[in-house]
């Protein structure tokens, strides 16, 4: 059984009187430790699939089994607890809390884990070190560049040591060199920490950092690419 297993996964929601089905009867297996990118035109269902895997949305029908648990049947509070353990989420626009410093933003998910202040400090410092932003720990988001904000967001996503990291267009708002640095960082997290990484992107160059790329269209899987070399993008 795959680490992440989608069977007949469908998500429909209504907007006004229209029913929209961004994800339609999708079957997909993802192995643990993989760096996967999801591509496709707007409305193809990439972000919907990412949100379902991250447990922040629930399928209308079908099953979504992660590490042996069908999260489609979980209650809201069960999903919240599951997310805090399994998921690190990286957003396109970073979504840091503006009134908190970089350190406090990274500390946020740890507040849910019943750790002592000292334990939290150790984990936050390690995460900030890993993403190379430790010297900006007391800066507020408004005092950081886009690339630095995204590094803080990545630190926040990895600080609880989750099994899965999902990223929704993490380089979509960054210049080329910052985007490259962020993709390098994500690749090293996948490679060195062995975490499963699923990234939504519009950018074919960004997708080259992944081990595998899935193309979606109208809520269905249409193509799978495996790059010649998973480090191609970095060269």
């Amino acid at each position: 059984m795959a680490f992440i297993e989608c069977r007949n996964l469908t998500r429909t929601y209504t907007r006004g009187t229209n029913a929209i089905t961004p994800l339609d009867d999708l079957d997909l297996d993802i192995e643990e430790g993989m760096f996967l990118s999801l591509m496709g035109p707007s409305g193809s269902g990439k972000t919907t699939l990412l949100n379902l895997i991250a447990g922040i949305d629930r399928p209308t029908s079908g099953s979504l089994t992660i590490d042996g648990h069908n999260i489609a049947n979980s209650s809201k509070s069960e999903l919240a607890a599951w997310r805090s353990e399994y998921i690190g989420y990286i957003f396109q626009l970073y979504n840091l809390v503006p009134v908190l410093t970089a350190y406090e933003n990274v500390e946020l998910p740890l507040l849910l884990h019943g750790l002592t202040r000292k334990e939290r400090h150790r984990k936050v410092s390690a995460a900030l070190d890993l993403v190379g932003i430790a010297d900006r720990h007391d800066h507020y988001p408004r005092q950081l560049s886009g690339g630095q904000e995204q590094r803080v967001a990545i630190a926040r996503a990895i600080v609880t040591d989750p099994r899965i990291i999902v990223a929704d267009e993490p380089t979509g708002d960054l210049d080329k060199s910052s985007a490259r640095a962020i993709l390098d960082l994500m690749q090293s997290i996948n490679r060195d920490l062995g975490r499963t990484l699923i990234m939504v992107t519009h950018d074919p160059h960004a997708a080259e950092w992944a081990q595998k790329t899935l193309h979606l269209e109208k809520g269905r899987l249409v193509e799978q690419d495996v790059p010649q070399s998973t480090t191609a993008g970095a060269t």
């Binding site: 919240a80 607890a81 809390v97 849910l112």
Partner: peptide
Amino acid sequence: KEHAVLQTLGFHN
């Protein structure tokens, strides 16, 4: 949006 982010991090309702 910020509350949605907190929920994404695992803060329950």
